[in-house]
Amino acid sequence: MTTLAPAPHGTGGHPRRSRGAPAPAVRSLLRGLPTVPAVVLLAVFLAGPIAYCVYYAFTDMQLTGAAGTHFVGVDNFTRAFKDTDFLNAMWLTLLFVVGSAVIGQNTLGLALAVLMQKATQPVRALVNGVVIAAWVLPEVVAGYLMYAFFYDQGSLNSLLDAAHLPDQNWLYTTPILAVCLANVWRGTAFSLMVFTAAINDVPQELVEAAEMDGAGPWQRLWRVVLPVIRPSILTNLMLITLQTLSVFGLIYTMTRGGPGNKSETLPIFMYQQAFQNSLIGYGTAIALVLLVVGALFSVVYIRLLKLEDD
């Protein structure tokens, strides 16, 4: 199918030209016409706000209105990097992204995908079903369920009690761990799907050849399967990092960033500065930091993917 795709570009204009038709410049404008609705929507609702974001990050705008807004240069940023709450939020965001996405979802997803290859059919269907069910649930519902699960009198503690293990008030003592685990619970399905697809694409001859040469299951995994699916691992890491960077509802439902600021990641800090402390300018500066971090990851991600026909 992909081999057919380049064909139209050369011949697509042919019938039209034979009918004696518009000049090339006009023709390419006409051809671009269908993109207009999408371009307008994207320009107004995405590019517009991003430009706004860059502008307002350098002002002292407050929630009360734009009337008293002044240009304050990089004040918001110098303020941010001196603000211990901001540095705390940066640190927690890093913990959250590395802990729940890079380590948690990625490793668990890969482990489950590898193990599922060897499991019996009903067990595979079971794992797939429950992992994907947690992923399909709306974010706030997942947050609510995880709140109930980690709550002091919740299911996790009753399990630990039953096993005679020490329990604790998860949402108070280690809220960041609780939200990380919650994000692993909710998000692993994505990695699982990516890795299952990737492992199914590994040429079977390769694995069998390694087996013939006496490679055990571990060696086959480390020396054959993992190197072959390396591009998928990279793509997956970039995508789940981007998704995890912008998680708001899950954490906000579970802890609201608390207690204190112990689970206050950047999106939550940004929201609280902008809407609870009414500092839109400062909140926007934090949003810009988040946007730049996301943009950097996004650039790396598109460099990993090559547009197949260019």
Partner: peptide, 25 residues
């Protein structure tokens, strides 16, 4: 080509981060 790259780039942008400017707008 630039158009496609822009689209691909925007799929990765954290929408959460633009919500405050969207609100002001």
């Amino acid at each position: 080509r630039p158009f496609l790259y822009t689209i691909l780039f925007s799929t990765g942008l954290p929408i959460t981060a633009v919500m405050i400017p969207v609100y002001s707008m």
